[in-house]
C-alpha cells in the first residue's frame, strides 16, 4: 500500500492505480467526457486534469490527466486548483463552440461559469465531441464496424465509406455508450436502424417480443460460444420455460 495526499487528505492507494479511480472512490468529483469503464482510458477530452506535485522536487507541479496517471507513494494531488479550473474552463469553451447542443457539455459549461463562449459557436454543430468511446467500444469489444476517419479537425466517426457496414451487428452499444447522444438510431419494435443499416430484430418465439438482431445472435454464438436458440427468446418466456422445468422436476 502506498499513500498520496488528495486535496489535503491522506489516502491509501494501490501503486499504479489511476488517480481518477482513487478520487471517485473517495467521493471526489472529477468531470470526464471520454471515460468509460469498459474500455482503456484515452486521455482525449482532457477534462479530468488534476495538478500533481512531488514534495521531493520542490516547486515542481504539473497538470496530468487523472484517468491515465498512476498513483505513486507521496504524490500530492489537487483535483480543483486554480490552474486545473482555468484549463478545464478553457477546454469547455472550445467544446461549447463545437457542440453547443450536447447536454453534458452545456451542463459542465454552466458548472464552470461559462456564460458566453468566446469563440464563434457552431449552432448547428453535431453533438459528437470525438471522445472515442463509441469506436473504442466497437473496436475493442464488439465487431469493429466503426472507426475514426481522417485526422485533425476533419476527424469524424463513420463506417467504411459511410455506407452500411457488413461488420455492424446492430447491438446499439455505440449509440448507448455515447455521452452526448450523438449517434442517431431508431429502435422500434422489430426494426432497428443505425449507421444507415436497417436490422430486423428477431421476435421471441414465445411471445413475439423483440430480442436481439440475428446478426448479433450469430456474433455472440460465434465469438462467445453461446447457443443462438437461447438468445432468440425473450427473458420472460425463458423464465417461464425455466419455471415449467422446475415444476416438472418437482413432480
Amino acid at each position: 500500500m502506498s499513500e498520496i495526499i488528495l486535496n489535503g487528505r491522506k489516502v491509501k492507494v494501490r501503486k499504479g492505480e489511476f488517480l481518477l479511480a482513487v478520487a471517485r472512490r473517495e467521493g471526489i468529483e472529477i468531470p470526464t467526457l471520454c471515460q468509460h469503464d469498459a474500455v482503456e482510458p484515452a486521455g482525449a477530452c482532457r477534462l479530468c486534469l488534476v495538478e500533481v506535485t512531488r514534495p521531493e522536487w520542490e516547486g515542481w507541479s504539473k497538470l496530468v490527466t487523472s484517468c491515465l496517471f498512476p498513483a505513486e507513494d507521496g504524490l500530492i494531488v489537487s483535483t480543483d486548483s486554480a490552474p486545473v479550473h482555468k484549463t478545464r474552463k478553457g477546454i469547455l469553451e472550445l467544446l461549447m463552440a463545437r457542440s453547443p447542443n450536447a447536454v453534458p457539455v452545456r451542463e459542465l459549461a454552466r458548472q464552470y461559469g461559462i456564460e458566453q463562449c468566446p469563440y464563434p459557436v457552431q449552432h448547428d454543430g453535431d453533438n459528437c465531441i470525438l471522445c472515442d468511446i463509441c469506436t473504442r467500444v466497437c473496436q475493442n469489444l464488439v465487431t469493429g464496424a466503426i472507426s475514426r476517419i481522417d485526422r485533425g479537425v476533419g476527424k469524424r466517426v463513420a463506417t467504411p465509406f459511410a455506407e452500411p457496414s457488413t461488420d455492424c451487428v446492430g447491438c446499439l452499444a455505440c449509440a448507448k455508450s455515447c455521452p452526448t447522444a450523438a449517434i442517431p438510431y431508431e429502435d422500434e419494435g422489430l426494426r432497428r436502424t443505425i449507421w444507415g443499416k436497417t436490422f430486423e430484430v428477431a421476435s421471441c418465439a414465445g411471445c413475439g417480443a423483440p430480442t436481439v438482431t440475428a446478426e448479433q445472435a450469430a456474433w455472440i454464438e460465434q465469438s462467445k460460444g453461446v447457443s443462438r436458440e437461447d438468445q432468440l427468446v425473450c427473458d420472460r418466456c425463458k423464465a417461464q420455460k425455466t419455471a415449467a422445468a422446475y415444476q416438472k422436476l418437482a413432480w
Binding site: 473496436q139 464496424a145 457496414s165 457488413t166
Partner: peptide
C-alpha cells in the same frame, strides 16, 4: 485479419 473500419482509419489518417 482486422476489421475494414480499422483499415479505413489508417488509410485516411
Amino acid at each position: 485479419a482486422v476489421p475494414l473500419a480499422r483499415v479505413m482509419s489508417v488509410a485516411t489518417f
